[in-house]
Write a protein that binds this DNA or RNA. Sequence first.
DNA 1: CGGACAGTTGACCTATTTCAAATGTGGTGG
DNA 2: CCACCACATTTGAAATAGGTCAACTGTCCG
Lengths: 239, 239
Amino acid sequence: MIEAHLAKLRARDTISAEEERVIRDSLGTVRDIPAQTTCIRAGERLLVSTLLTDGLMCRYKDLPGGERQITELHVAGDFVDLHSFSLKQLDHNVMALTPCRVILVPHVKLTAITEQHPHLARVYWFLTALDAAIHREWVLSLGRRSAIERIAHLMCELRVRLGLIGQADDSGFDLAIKQSDLSDCTGLTPVHVNRTLRELRERGLMDFKGKRVVIHDLAGLKALAEFDEDYLYLRREER
Amino acid sequence: MIEAHLAKLRARDTISAEEERVIRDSLGTVRDIPAQTTCIRAGERLLVSTLLTDGLMCRYKDLPGGERQITELHVAGDFVDLHSFSLKQLDHNVMALTPCRVILVPHVKLTAITEQHPHLARVYWFLTALDAAIHREWVLSLGRRSAIERIAHLMCELRVRLGLIGQADDSGFDLAIKQSDLSDCTGLTPVHVNRTLRELRERGLMDFKGKRVVIHDLAGLKALAEFDEDYLYLRREER
DNA sequence: CGGACAGTTGACCTATTTCAAATGTGGTGG
DNA sequence: CCACCACATTTGAAATAGGTCAACTGTCCG
């Protein structure tokens, strides 16, 4: 059930059998969340963190006028709000984009990890630093990349992150979200996302149709996005 | 020398005398960095983290074409690359915007803190989560706010963060950066930043002239930016 | 079969960019 | 103290990427 999570960790550091046991002992309630459901709201007092085991979730913020901005997408194996352990309440909402399954991990268990398993604590600290690195890449995209570059870059990111858990390969991956969700990730309008996807199709790079991304020219897509996966910290290190 | 840093921590949690001593014992070399100097480059292997005690620094990423995007500004008291402790190398550069003084903190000292002072470790974990929260607010700005809103919002953020260390009040604060730096924060062109600053001045909200931000109408500025300081986590909590 | 909603397209609009030139401004050397 | 240089700021005019509005076309599901 947490294989994707362990795979994500083990791509970045060594997790001992003992540490794996500690992780498993920390797992609490399992919950299923229907698609399009906001499950955590900004400002709520939180006593658990949410580990996503199946489905696609997002974090988003919105403005009084109703504009929405997604700040990160989450795939299976991601701790969608590990940072709520430090923050106690979030500055953003969390929503299931597809039907999701999650495991709740009590903050008291995380506190115990910081007291008794410092290396594992550092690994989880790393995970939150990795989220921040992804945020920075999105800041760069939103600030300095064109519409087509932003979408191409996001697709490259998703391909790598889904690939880590065996849900993507060079030919593409399933992505059961709406074009308007994509527009909320990229700071564009749904209409312009639609036109830009057509452009990507017409350039022979990729096709997003029927909840699947089909990559026709991965090298070309990466080149357009100027994609450099260093920000995903895929190297194994002693953290 | 680290009073600003302690003030920043103590605005968010209780730091005991013992913990303060541990922090002081972790401090290494002091270094002065001239304005406009990049002191940390993406990809460098890092064994120390950098605590800023005086001046203004930024983290930035750039694209092959030369476009630059600043991902965060740092004021005195900030750990500009505490996350390098987890990440080992950065996905971005760090540059002094003004003449700066920093203290280097060896990662081995931080490791020791995670082994021996779990509460302090959680406080530092929190600091990196706070940086991520700031990143998310910037994602929202870049994705969904107009030029004038972005600049107004950034000024509101700086006023609060500088205020915490006694370097800003309701009337304004010193800000010794160029308009082009502001454009790199907000994803705009320097020309448009200039026009937008004029608009802010003409609306009687604020004036950025001679390296100082003079706020004429704080309430109006906040209203324009739809500024809500919750994302800066100013409440004291047991972390 | 119908209704709701996602995707698609066209025509027009505008915020921001681009390009280019003019005007400060602060520091340095003579 | 002044002249000059480099560089930041300011302004104008023209161009464009992306937004807005509105209609039409799937497509899925009850």
